[in-house]
Design a protein around this nucleic acid. Structure first.
Lengths: 164, 164
DNA sequence: AGAAAGTTCACCCAAGCAGTATACTTTAGG
DNA sequence: CCTAAAGTATACTGCTTGGGTGAACTTTCT
């Protein structure tokens, strides 16, 4: 139930690019150095992001990487699926082959898991990198937002850790 | 980003017990047979559930397993953490050792992940096995609930799959 | 031409997942 | 009290994934 290290690195690499002036190209070396990511591994991750159309790569001497579109059009979900593939909480949900309960169309547990997965995905989708790049750390706390708040952003605010 | 097979089996084993008359003891063999779970593997999982106080085991000839408390007091989260340990979406969130961004108290990405993890946990907590055992499959669809709805149940309803 | 960037492909080691094996303890019943 | 039917304990195995490295290549600027 956890996302892997490459995804975490990818988040921070994209965040790094999002904090730069738009269109700015920066070498992988610089990102690796500033974010403490092993360079070879970062390059591998950046290739995934390139293939997914999230960043553009520039080869040759003054080369490097830049965001392929504006940060508010890039969500955590975009980066997550670029690195790990589609989110699936349970293999059963996507591949009925694996479900040992063939009887009912889907058992109660799987309906629940499907619902959980759906909101999880929506959550990842609700964060974009313009938001994240905005305030470097802890949100202003006074943050009031009309509970309709559409379009680009507005994640459910869940500030304090709940357990463990 | 997925939960493992043992957890899925555990969910269905507990659901099986929840669908029986309260206090009924049933052998692992039977659960394994009906839910198509490899018996040895199921026994291993049942030991985890026993240690966590979710089921009680009865040894000897007429032995078997039964729920240790009433089904509405057992949530998906209980079973999940019994099998997999505490939910942590990102090792960074729990073990600052691993965070390469020591600079700010926590970077924007991690604040977002923390919030996502919190709602994820709440989601798993919002399903109990009395609910799940009740309607075998698809919820009644007309399901209206006051958006305050406390205590035992009431998950956020997220009916249709969102992508992939 | 050559240095500085990214690309490709292939490899490696460790950990976790899914499941199995063996030997044991407890309990009911004859 | 012996035995069979249940669960318990510990350890092992094969496989996949995660996390990362190596070496040789291509592109581009100067």
């Amino acid at each position: 139930m956890r996302l892997n290290q490459a995804t975490d690195y990818a988040f921070r690499a994209v965040l790094h690019l999002a904090q730069l002036p738009p269109g700015e190209v920066v070498e992988a070396q610089v990102i690796a150095g500033r974010e403490c990511i092993p360079i070879r591994f970062l390059l591998k991750i950046l290739r995934l992001l390139t293939k997914a159309g999230i960043v553009n790569s520039h080869r040759g001497v003054g080369g490097g990487y830049a965001l392929a579109r504006s940060p508010e059009k890039i969500t955590l979900l975009d980066v997550l699926t670029a690195v790990e593939g589609p989110v699936r909480i349970n293999r059963c949900l996507v591949d009925p082959e694996f479900c040992s309960r063939q009887g009912p169309p889907h058992c109660a547990v799987h309906n629940a898991l499907r619902a959980i997965q759906t909101t999880l995905i929506q959550q990842f989708q609700s964060y974009n990198f313009a938001q994240l790049a905005g305030r470097t750390s802890s949100r202003p706390a006074g943050e009031k937002l009309k509970s309709g708040e559409p379009a680009t952003g507005s994640a459910i605010t869940g500030p304090e850790p709940v357990n463990a």
